[in-house]
């Protein structure tokens, strides 16, 4: 059905070139750091690096042998698994209760939660609260404040309201109580929306950096990988260490390749879950936008 005109073809060609330019703009920084981190620094001539110059894994060996990087990876993995699990547990239970119009006070509770979306108390009251609760310098500070996500609660509730009511009613007739209805009937069929919110929370936890900076700077054993990367980018002590050890072992690493190797290590998990993220997240995003 499409008509062929000169202006149309020109537009197609221009559009294609534009899209290729966008692709380059989005991809090049990643290609550059991966290639650079795999290069032998003595063979790099500067400028744009598309392919590794003199392939070597030395900077990765160095990074993965670094105790700070390993501790950071452990903390980041732990919070990216525990955080979403805890969030899903508390948030989905509450979301289910909020779908039940027969629950006394449900309108109040809906407002009670949604109210929190419009403003927050700010950084200082939160900081003082964490002090009172003795959560500073603990792992729990990564988990508890995000144990309930109201945004996700709204997404989950919207999804549950779209489910056929007959499922619930059948279970109630069979004599199941509300908790069993939720865990055995509702929970299994909510997989798509749960996948979306869990993956999103995973990424949030993996990418989180400022909570370490605010609450846990005094506890190096709780530094997340993002924070280790931040320190590596900003501090030069690791640079000096590298120089010393570099002279001893004559390995081909510069601070630059080392930084880029850690950057790549920090991106990799996101890249691995990205296919799932894209599939489930777009669905979740659209559920949210319909409601919004």
């Amino acid at each position: 059905m499409r008509e062929r005109s000169i202006s149309g073809s020109l537009f197609d060609a221009g559009n294609l070139i534009f899209m290729l330019a966008i692709l380059t703009l989005m991809l090049f920084p990643f290609v550059y750091i991966v290639s650079y981190s795999l290069s032998n620094p003595s063979m790099l001539k500067g400028g744009l690096v598309l392919f590794p110059a003199g392939f070597t894994l030395d900077s990765y060996k160095k990074a993965l042998g670094d105790s700070a990087v390993l501790t950071g990876a452990g903390i980041s993995i732990a919070r990216s698994i525990i955080g979403p699990a805890v969030m899903l547990f508390f948030t989905s239970m509450a979301a289910y209760a909020l779908t039940r119009n027969d629950l006394g006070g449900v309108r109040f509770f809906r407002k009670y939660f949604v109210f929190t979306l419009y403003f927050t108390s700010g950084i200082i009251p939160m900081y003082l609260l964490m002090g009172y609760l003795q959560l500073k310098g603990t792992f729990l500070i990564y988990i508890l404040p995000s144990a309930v996500s109201v945004f996700n609660m709204v997404l989950i509730k919207t999804y549950m309201e779209g489910l056929p009511k007959e499922m619930e009613e059948a279970a109630v007739v069979d004599g199941a109580n509300d908790m069993r209805v939720f865990f055995q009937v509702i929970f299994p069929v909510c997989k798509p929306v749960f996948a979306a919110v869990v993956l999103f929370e995973c990424v949030n936890q993996w990418n989180a950096f400022i909570d370490t900076q605010i609450y846990n700077t005094m506890s190096p054993h709780l530094y997340s990988l993002q924070y280790v990367l931040y320190n590596t980018l900003n501090q030069f002590n690791s640079l000096e260490q590298l120089k010393e050890q570099g002279q001893k072992q004559l390995t081909a690493i510069t601070p630059q390749t080392f930084k880029m190797a850690i950057t790549v290590i920090t991106i990799l998990p996101i890249a691995f879950v990205y296919p799932f993220l894209q599939r489930y997240f777009i669905k979740g995003l659209l559920v949210g936008s319909i409601k919004g």
């Binding site: 239970m93 509450a94 629950l103 508890l144 309930v148």
Partner: peptide, 17 residues
């Protein structure tokens, strides 16, 4: 049971928000 499911979230939001 519904209140029991709602309560933890209500408390967490109360404490942290």
């Amino acid at each position: 049971y519904l209140y029991a499911m709602l309560l933890p979230a209500v408390l967490l939001v109360f404490v942290f928000w």
